[in-house]
Nucleic acid binder design. Sequence first.
RNA 1: GGAGAGAUGGCCGAGUAGGUCGAAGGCGCUCGCCUGCUAAGCGAGUAUACUGGGAAACCGGUAUCGAGGGUUCGAAUCCCUCUCUCUCCGCCA
Length: 423
Amino acid sequence: MLDMKYIRENLDETERRLRTRGGESYLDGFRELDERRRALLKEGETLKALRNSVSDEIGRTKDKSLVQDKILEMREVSHKIKGLDEELNQVDEQLHSFLLTVPNLPHASTPIGLYEKDNVQVRSWGEPQRLPFEAKPHWDLGEDLGILDFERGAKIAGARFTLYRGAGARMERALINLMLDLHTDQHGYQEVLPPFMVNRDSMTGTGQLPKFEEDLFKLVDPDFFLIPTAEVPVTNIHRGEILKKSDLPISYCAYTPCFRREAGSYGKDTRGLIRQHQFNKVELVKFVHPSESDAELEILTGHAEKVLQLLELPYRVMSLCSGDIGFSSAKTYDLEVWLPGQSCYREISSCSTFGDFQARRASIRFREDEKGKPEFVHTLNGSGLAVGRTLVAILENYQQEDGSVLVPRVLRPYMGGLERIVP
RNA sequence: GGAGAGAUGGCCGAGUAGGUCGAAGGCGCUCGCCUGCUAAGCGAGUAUACUGGGAAACCGGUAUCGAGGGUUCGAAUCCCUCUCUCUCCGCCA
């Protein structure tokens, strides 16, 4: 959520910056609602002040017959206050839900542009492999090796679900452990294991709601949602809290499955593991001092990159343009891994800084000094990494001409020493 | 699922025949005094949001005692609904 006062004082500039995301208009109607609200507030509060002082006087008067006329008068005033409050509540509600649908302001360093082609490559690592034989896509490799069973996944649940078997299931688990060990032991994150379902407040805090409900799996009876990313439960760990400055930065990593409806992507990436309703991810989340968030984004992105480097998977880092960053994001780096089976780069991690956008929605604050006003922290997160897509990248990059797949060195201790997956 | 108890400020904890309660007291914390050091002691201060005024320091108003609604001139206190926590019973990985 953007700061209401900031919008009020910088309406045109805010609108201009938001439009770099590509929409038509973002702040139409704000001025009217805001002014209406303040007028109602002023009128109601003046009456309440009157009522308070007169009620006080009535309270101090022993002989109530002396103040009968005042009681009657205040009865009128209270009636009027009630009407004003009702109207104010309506306007408040409108203004609040309006603000909840306004996306974050792009960071000053986010490239301006509307389309994927406007994303900027920041750097790359490793050489995209050119295999000396015809490379297979991972869905063929997975089926031929008997480690990915797409048909059975579809039978058990439906499209976009996969059954992992044997070395495939083992490798998924190995990757999770490798990533968690790296981030906790080497990068200073605390591991957390959060609930995989959350309530509406948590989804609103990180920005999935109210706008993107159709992207979520929702439970019918208790009003719960399956998490689309660990970002949601982990960022909400500190919702409504005032943190100690000395606690910052707070760094969490979490393994969770992620559940996404993928509504609107019918027919896209229907084969293989790329786009699933359920996938595993190790997520990195940070709560930082506002002055540190820019630097922390670089650090966090580096932590995600480290996983790819250890696995010796070639990748590139893209700075997403203003039209391509997410609703809550101010700046996003995507890590794209090279997939020789499909001869393309695919997103495997997305690292974002949200500035104070999520912190304001979720009310996560700290004090600069003991007596200072609470200020909003900055939040960041990034995949470190998407596990299913990492497995895809390994299968395609480590495939051999005979159809077997070598296990990356760093992963072997996590797989009981297995060096090669064979049919 | 059944029965009962509870939810007050950073923490603990008073406060129910409705008014002088944004809320006693204690702890913690901040500043000052005192003080060979430490400890103790003394004094002052110590919630948040919105809003009006002001360049600012700051001053004023309103709201908030789990959340929402009701009664009343007036609600932490009375009534209703909900959420959460705890205890006992049942069920259960």
